[in-house]
Design a protein around this nucleic acid. Structure first.
Lengths: 124, 124
DNA sequence: GCTCATGTGTATATAGTAGTACACAGTACC
DNA sequence: GGTACTGTGTACTACTATATACACATGAGC
């Protein structure tokens, strides 16, 4: 017997919006059918979309991202989570990546992107 | 009624080692007194050190790091966790930081450090 | 040899996570 | 106008996280 505090709910709202958009052209994007495809009970997906229950597990969020053609990292972020593979990167070299992230915390997007590009071009 | 699978236990082992090292010169680093200072029951800290129970919460780990003069990020990593403030950095710009981290995942330490230095010197 | 601190065993509590099972009322469609 | 699918309400479950409370035997120091 408990209540889920029902504030804003960015994750569920976004999922519902995306699902209904897809549904215009594809009737298989009903709550029931999508729920079945990602492997949960329809009533559960319904509750998640309405924010009556917290977002599902990382795995289910990944399947949602896949079905809805969305970036899993972005959906996970909306759900208040961080991908476990990213957490693993940090956990293997905590001091190093902690300082990198804290330094880049407020860096403008283009600056970070430049670093990404530098790294990708193999400049090290 | 459950058992904690008691494999390797890097966190507890490390804490015990550090605590006993400190205790050579300072008798206040007994299980009981340290537990009291960080705000947990002595029997709980004992179980954590012996790996009978999983590592404590982030907050308690931070207090341990403080008492033992250790890097909180490193202790958290040993406990299989990532600091919530770092998770927040990623969650605010998930696509950006996800790609950065995945690209740097296997980069050699000195290359990452060079980036840290670049950023610190404000080259953006 | 008594006191007091020490480490640890046993039992238990509470919240959060991550769902399932099933029934029920509305709607679509043919 | 019956069939079949839809969204959702109600009730329940199992497991994990994060601990507390207290008792007990041991050992060290005065």
């Amino acid at each position: 017997m408990y209540y889920y505090i029902h504030m804003s709910n960015p994750f569920g709202t976004y999922i519902r919006t995306q699902r209904e958009a897809r549904r215009q052209n594809d009737s298989s994007f009903s709550v029931r059918q999508l729920a079945t495809r990602i492997g949960v009970e329809p009533s559960y997906l319904s509750k998640v979309e309405r924010g009556e229950t917290p977002p599902p597990s990382e795995e289910k969020i990944r399947r949602l991202a896949n079905e809805l053609n969305d970036d899993p990292d972005v959906l996970l972020a909306m759900a208040g989570k961080v991908s476990t593979d990213l957490q693993d990167v940090i956990r293997r070299r905590p001091a190093l990546f902690a300082s990198l992230l804290r330094d880049l915390k407020d860096a403008p997007e283009h600056a970070v992107l430049r670093l990404v590009r530098e790294v990708r071009d193999g400049e090290w």
